[in-house]
Amino acid sequence: MDAPAARERPAIEVAVVMAREAAPNRWEDWRFHLVEVLAMQPAFGRAARCLHDDGKVARFLHPGLRIELFRDEAEGYHLNLSSGAPVVFVMWRIDEADPSRAWPEAVSLSYHEAGRWLDAQERVDNCPLPPDWREWLQAYTELHHQPEPRKRRRPQSFLPPGARG
């Protein structure tokens, strides 16, 4: 059973579409990239499946992921929204035993969370944030984002000579 806080947390269930290209060059056997992130539909089902495969390019649907909003990520949401081109971030992995297979692990709307994934050497791609999701994220961010108060910087002349920058 979900904890009460988890039930109250705003969330969207999504499906991720990823593409796999066979032998894109002589150094790679496979190349993967994010195609899009869609709002979950009952017709998607629950299992990942191939949507198209022509031998060169294949597209796979990965349903059942969640985008959850967390109060402590409000600054990351604000940065995403104020970037001029808000995006959905998807962290994905390649199967070490079968490098022709990849799947999304997590989806987020926070710049900070995507940055932590990148710092951990994870693979992260992004795609444009749909307009209706943008409105949802904007409303949440306006409610919970508290800009850091500016700290007055002490003039250098008041610092001891050894502490001056």
Rank of each mutant, 00 (worst) to 15 (best):
V124I: 08
V17S: 04
P160M: 06
V37L: 00
E36K: 05
R31D: 15
R116L: 13
P24A: 12
D119M: 14
A97H: 12
E13M: 11
L81Y: 06
Q138R: 10
F60A: 01
R164A: 08
H145C: 04
L61H: 02
W136F: 10
W136R: 09
H52N: 07
Y77I: 05
H145E: 03
C127I: 00
M1A: 10
R31I: 12
Q121E: 15
P99I: 06
A3F: 08
A5T: 06
L51V: 07
W27F: 15
E73I: 01
E148K: 13
N25P: 09
W133M: 08
E68F: 00
R153K: 14
P63C: 09
P131H: 05
R154M: 12
V14E: 05
A22P: 01
P155K: 13
A43P: 02
P104N: 09
V90Q: 02
G45T: 05
R152Y: 11
L38F: 00
S157F: 10
D72F: 02
L61P: 03
R134K: 08
L65Y: 11
D2L: 14
V87Q: 12
F60R: 08
A22R: 15
R71F: 01
E105I: 05
P128I: 00
A43V: 14
L143M: 14
P4T: 05
R153W: 07
A58P: 04
W92H: 11
L79V: 06
Q138L: 08
F60Q: 09
N80T: 00
P147N: 03
G76D: 10
A97V: 13
V107H: 07
F158M: 10
P131F: 01
D95C: 13
A3K: 12
G64S: 09
M18S: 07
L159N: 08
W30V: 06
R20Y: 08
I12Y: 01
Q156S: 15
W27I: 14
G162S: 13
P86L: 02
V88R: 03
A58G: 08
Q146H: 14
R93H: 08
P86Q: 06
W136P: 05
F89T: 05
E36V: 02
A3T: 07
D29K: 14
E8H: 04
S157E: 14
A6E: 12
E75N: 06
A3R: 11
A5L: 06
L69F: 00
W117V: 07
A22C: 14
R153M: 11
A74S: 13
W30M: 10
P63Y: 10
P24D: 13
D72H: 07
E73G: 01
N25W: 07
W27L: 15
L118Q: 14
Q121A: 15
E135G: 07
H145Q: 03
P4G: 02
